[in-house]
Amino acid sequence: MIRSRTLDILLGIAGILILLGLWQLVTSYELISRAFLPGPAATFRSLERGIVEGALLPQTWATIERMLQGWLLASVVAIAIGSLIGVSSTARAYLQPTLEFLRPLPASAIIPVAIAVVGLSWKMVLFVVVFGSVWPTLLATVHGFAHVEPRLVEVSRLLQMSRLAFIFKIGLPNAVPDILAGMRLSLTVALILAVVGELLTGELGLGTAVLHASRQYRADDLYAGIILLGVIGLVSNYGLALADKRILAWKS
């Protein structure tokens, strides 16, 4: 069945409205104390205060910046290492076991190490964000290189292309669809770890804002912060989906 895009968008909005309705019901009947779960109206008032009056803007930007920095750095590292592994069996032999050891480690387990090495600071947060979000893109890049059409490998040999030329003219373009998918996964991980890092270091950000709101029983501010985090995830994911479409125009 083919549904129109408009209908899909309407259904998506309807889903959000239903969730808001349920939320309103739960709070109207006080199924959960208002001290812990304020109504949508109170939350949106807090959100309005935070954004229009600007109380939450520095925190929001700080979190977005932290997430993007870590994600971009992780992407660059992942694509570079992935390409290296993709074209050199020697590099693969050297790196694969180490990477397979590091990859299953939970990023949270790395935090104490990061604190010990770089201290309880923004550098630690960046380190953890990079460590956690490097994997999806790295694996995607390796996968993309491993699945280059054999005919194109022959074409590169026939044209006597250097390894570097192969990476940039054939390997990477071929891996782009995989890399973009990996980067979308990585971005979510980066947001999560940026917030976790804030909670631990107390650096300015939405994570810290949420924690403070919770400790001071400002439930409406707490939920406003959470909604903002959700919106960051949603917007960044849609943004990347849009970029996907543009970059992968040749696929359609």
Binding site: R151, L152, E154, L158, Q160, I170, P173, V176
Partner: peptide, 23 residues
């Protein structure tokens, strides 16, 4: 001993031999 650019090859499977992401 190895390929040279003085020799060009045209394959049967053009769909695989061309770079799909390049115009």
């Amino acid at each position: 001993r190895s390929p040279t650019r003085r020799v060009a090859v045209v394959f049967q499977d053009y769909g695989r031999a061309l770079l799909p992401w390049r115009r």
